[in-house]
């Protein structure tokens, strides 16, 4: 069986989970084994209808006091229990902050090989073959498994969503006996409506060329109009202009959006490593020799303080 850890929070299924179930379904035909989605924690029951749309053969629902709040070791124990009982040979996770945190503990429990943040998955001789960016995307590794159980976390926005309605058998799994060591005691979400960097289809990113924190609203406005997220270069983060959670690059996030708009970013090797796999790159920079132009699908040489306001006006016309 292919088991997909389908992260949900308060009944809302993550987009990355839908991508993981879609990929599980595709793998299930390649491997000729059934695919099951595992929903865990408070609200899991409410996410069943949504997860069904992506074609699982089975859905496991685990709720209980010990799983009401996220706990890396508790969620890992619960996942490993289901995997063992069901004889799972493949376990897929979305590479969300939860998937990244839980999956290694599951791998340790079931003695599985785990490949993180993969961007490609195939089957050869009945085993998985994963494509994994290393050195922040400066190279791509093809990774094979030696273990019986094979685990991967899937990078967001890479594996296509595929609706595939099914009428799966839904099984409630008892969460009794799980006693977490570490547990979330509170969660603080920023004001709603902001798109997360790792999940965004469009990222508008600012660098040293923005000259100061007071100018970030310029690109925030463009991001808002495009329904995208705000990114930043290390230079902008290190200068304290914007929080580290926005940093794209080798010591920040590695992202693969459909469109990456780099504003006032020269394109240091560490930054390019973090966004070089974007489908389309638009660069705005006053220095016509900036390395970012070497990888830009569309390069605009000019003053971003004139171009971005003009772009904002253009986008408002479309709204």
């Amino acid at each position: 069986m292919i088991l997909v850890f389908a992260e949900q929070r308060d009944g809302v299924l993550k987009k990355a989970s839908k991508e993981a179930v879609s990929e599980g379904k595709r793998l299930s035909s390649k491997l000729s084994v059934p695919v099951a989605a595992l929903l865990m924690g408070k609200g899991a029951d409410q996410a069943v209808d949504e997860v069904k749309k992506f074609g699982p053969d089975k859905v496991f629902v685990m709720e209980g006091a010990s799983l009401d709040q996220y706990s890396a070791d508790g969620f890992a124990e619960a996942t490993a229990n289901v995997a063992k009982e069901q004889g799972a040979t493949v376990i897929l996770f979305p590479a969300t902050t939860m998937g990244v945190d839980v999956s290694p503990r599951v791998a340790a429990r079931v003695e599985a090989g785990l490949v993180s943040d993969i961007t490609g998955l195939d089957v050869a001789d009945g085993k998985l073959v994963a494509i994994k960016p290393v050195y922040s995307g400066k190279a791509l590794a093809t990774v094979k498994f030696k273990s019986d159980i094979q685990m991967v976390t899937l990078r967001s926005n890479v594996f296509p969503l595929e609706e595939n309605s099914s009428a799966p058998e839904v099984t409630k799994v008892d969460a009794a006996g799980i006693s977490p060591k570490g547990m979330v005691v509170s969660t603080e979400l920023k004001e709603g409506g902001k798109v997360e960097l790792g999940e965004a289809a469009i990222i508008v990113s600012g660098g040293r060329g923005l000259k100061g924190p007071e100018n970030f609203p310029l690109i925030e406005e463009v991001a808002r109009l495009l329904g995208g997220a705000v990114g930043a270069s290390r230079a902008a983060v290190d200068a304290g202009w914007i929080e580290h959670s926005h940093q794209v690059g080798q010591t920040g996030k590695v992202v693969s959006p459909v469109v990456y708009i780099a504003c006032g970013i020269s394109g240091a090797i560490q930054h390019i490593a973090g966004m070089g796999s974007s489908k389309f790159i638009i660069a705005i920079n006053k220095d016509e020799d900036a390395p970012i132009f070497n990888i830009a699908s569309l390069g605009i040489v000019g003053d971003l303080f004139k171009i971005i306001p003009a772009l904002t006006e253009e986008l408002k016309k479309l709204a």
């Binding site: 791998a107 003695e111 599985a112 090989g113 785990l114 490949v115 073959v129 960016p133 290393v134 995307g137 400066k138 190279a139 791509l140 590794a141 093809t142 990774v143 094979k144 498994f145 030696k146 273990s147 070089g276 796999s277 790159i281 070497n294 990888i295």
Partner: peptide, 14 residues
Amino acid sequence: SRTEFASLELPPAR
């Protein structure tokens, strides 16, 4: 080890 690198390549040049 449970996994092994079969190969390593540079990404396609943009």
